[in-house]
Write a protein that binds this DNA or RNA. Structure first.
Lengths: 197, 197
DNA sequence: GTCTATATGCCGATAGAC
DNA sequence: GTCTATCGGCATATAGAC
């Protein structure tokens, strides 16, 4: 009980720091946000912040992996695999759009930092080869069934990522269209037509 | 002659500042780059930098518009319009990839800052509705001819931008494939299949 | 684990001579 | 237009009590 209590306290403060950092990084950018302001917004002292994270850099990289993991968990757990590649891809795509719409801060974080220099290459690789590996596997399965075009896998993956970022950027700029079925359908059609065999 | 000389001097210093800022922003990021280091790299004093630009922010926004304009000028001037939408789109696409490969610094600048918060919305809008208007017009023309799918134009534009960024990101990570025709062809095919009717 | 207090250096921008 | 010199402020990170 004592241990559980301590752990909860621990994660509470740590999560508060991550949550405040997320909000501030998104609204102001990384370097424009001071560690002091993150600590203040989280209701902790700067010393506490540096107790949980060795540096400001580690905060944003930690945040990136946390959010990617949450993204992956959510879109997978809301999907049922049918074995029909296009259908499964559509389900994942729509879940991904739903997630982005329901998590505007995290969505904006991806838009701003997915391609930025603040996220180091180790973090990026961990996301692609670990957390998002199921996407790689789905595309390769699609190629084996001659449903997905036999373009180089790296090019396909980069294209998927780029189209997803474009889609959530569109729905960010036009939040009123988030539930419009024709726009939702079109965003998947663009993606699927690009990669299908 | 005196005026020309003065003007040339003027643009020389100003361009030197912009060139140094480009290199430093790309390698270190915006906020991590000090105005002092930009001035030093350009061989001018900090006072001179602030004579030409009212603030550090104005440097990066100025840079963004300059590079977008150069990008647009280059891919247009290397193209001959045939009236065949797919052919013209392919020419523009391949020219755009060529430009990115031949200008690695400017390409990386786009990758890092196209979606970042450092570029303000006025700058962004000026780029889309002014400098890149010819792209909007080409897509609309394609829709009128029923060659390009009738998805909402804003969604199409965002998708084009996203796929272009994905393509240059791929060729950045794999410079040895920049002249490989199958990869070049595949990158256009992905783009075109997505948007065609 | 969390706090207060603070070290120390660098930052953007300005002033003013030439 | 360009320079030198410099200001006031804020940044990250640490020290050490509790």
């Amino acid at each position: 009980m004592t241990i559980e209590h301590a752990t909860k306290k621990h994660t509470d403060k740590k999560n508060a720091i991550l949550a405040s950092a997320l909000a501030l990084f998104v609204s102001q950018g990384f370097h424009a946000t001071s560690t002091a302001s993150i600590a203040k917004a989280a209701g902790v002292a700067t010393g506490t912040l540096f107790h949980h994270f060795p540096s400001k850099d580690s905060i944003i990289n930690h945040l990136f992996l946390n959010i990617k993991q949450e993204f992956a968990d959510t879109i997978i757990s809301n999907s049922q695999v049918t074995g029909d590649i296009e259908l499964d891809a559509n389900t994942l795509w729509q879940n991904a759009i739903d997630w982005a719409i329901s998590q505007p801060l995290k969505q904006k974080f991806f838009l701003q930092f997915s391609l930025s220099a603040e996220i180091n290459t180790a973090t990026r690789q961990q996301a692609m080869t670990g957390i998002l590996r199921f996407i790689v596997e789905l595309i390769e399965k699609g190629q084996q069934q001659n449903i997905v075009a036999h373009y180089p896998i790296d090019l396909l993956l980069e294209n998927c990522h780029g189209q997803y970022l474009a889609a959530i950027r569109f729905f960010t700029d036009h939040p009123e269209l988030g539930q419009d079925t024709s726009h939702r359908h079109a965003s998947f059609q663009l993606f699927w037509k690009a990669i299908k065999a």
